[in-house]
């Protein structure tokens, strides 16, 4: 008798749980659909605008969807910026810079997280400091540094500088990336620092006892365990280099990367363009051509996430 009652109550609990699960899924679905709409709507508007032909722009009955959709705008921009060349250059730079930043930031973060030494807290403070000071405030002195680059004068403050110009080479951005002082690198160091602080010590000690050196422990235990973090950081570094305009326009003004090409093409490339509306039509294909490749890169990096989850069963 008692057993039957218990069985009944268990099955009732199961139904209740199932009902909760369904409710939860419906609410989650509605919420996500709403937010996805909110994010995508402006981009759809841009996509629609960039497909408009000249006759649609001046047709008052065209509100949202173009009546004579055309790829003409994309083709104009594509040819004007010599898209394939600019794309290849930007991709090569973003990829290199991304890898360099991931390596340098991982090293610094590991050193700060796993070792005790004098000045550790000061270095941590300086890392946050580089994040607080906006890039633009120190960009001019930094430009002077690289305009008159001389290894012997690097510590000199003020005064006359004489040296070779590194402007219009990739060296400034490479040097900054290799020394973990490029755009938002403080954030990457901080993310990895927090991650390494929380990664299990047991595994590292085991590796150490088994005769792994400090560096081997780092490359064989710490780095594989941090793959989701490293992928995320690479993604940030890649994206922010790809869309960067400040550094590129100051250190490499004549190197024709995608952002500067897209920003520099003649403002009014649509015949007889005028008014806010027409301007936004001219912006739309450019911003889409800029960000679309990044979505592909993102979807590609997702594969690393899935793999790393499986791997973390061994590592974590």
């Amino acid at each position: 008798m008692n057993l039957r009652l218990a069985e009944k109550s268990i099955s009732a609990a199961r139904i209740k749980k199932h009902a909760y699960g369904v409710c939860f899924r419906i609410i989650r679905g509605i919420l996500l659909a709403g937010l996805v709409f909110l994010i995508l709507y402006p981009i759809f508007v841009k996509a629609a605008a960039s497909l408009m032909s000249n006759s649609d722009i001046y047709n008052p009955s065209v509100v949202f969807l173009p009546k004579n959709p055309t790829f003409e705008n994309f083709i104009t921009v594509w040819n004007a910026v010599e898209y394939p060349i600019a794309f290849a250059k930007t991709f090569a730079l973003s990829f290199t810079v991304g890898i360099l930043q991931v390596i340098s930031c991982t090293l610094v973060a590991y050193g700060l997280a796993k070792f005790r030494f004098y000045g550790r807290r000061i270095i941590m403070g300086l890392v946050i400091f580089t994040l607080v000071i906006p890039t633009q405030t120190i960009l001019t002195p930094l430009y002077i540094r690289f305009r008159f680059f001389d290894i012997t004068q690097l510590l000199q403050i003020g005064g006359e500088l004489s040296g070779i110009s590194l402007i219009n080479t990739v060296l400034p951005i490479t040097l900054l990336s290799a020394t973990a002082t490029a755009f938002k690198n403080g954030l990457y160091i901080f993310i990895l620092l927090q991650h390494f602080k929380n990664s299990p010590k047991v595994l590292e000690e085991a590796a150490f006892i088994d005769g792994c050196g400090r560096f081997a422990t780092f490359t064989r235990i710490a780095v594989p365990g941090a793959v989701p973090m490293l992928v995320t950081i690479f993604l940030f570094a890649f994206v922010w280099q790809w869309t960067d305009y400040y550094y590129t326009s100051i250190f490499m003004p004549e190197m024709d990367f995608l952002t500067s090409r897209l920003l520099d093409i003649e403002f009014s490339w649509i015949a007889g363009i005028s008014g806010d509306y027409a301007i936004s039509v001219s912006y739309a294909p450019r911003v889409l051509l800029l960000i679309f490749p990044l979505v592909i890169v993102y979807l590609f990096t997702q594969r690393f996430f899935v793999e790393s989850v499986e791997r973390s069963g061994i590592v974590g």
């Binding site: 340098s104 090293l107 550790r120 020394t179 002082t181």
Partner: peptide, 28 residues
């Protein structure tokens, strides 16, 4: 030895800070 190893790991940032951040900030 541990301390020195740790410091060597952070060396990229220390060098970068001294070379590229410190003097621009002093100038600011």
């Amino acid at each position: 030895r541990d301390g020195i190893t740790g410091f060597l790991f952070t060396l990229p940032f220390v060098v970068g800070f001294i070379l590229f951040i410190f003097s621009p900030v002093v100038m600011y």
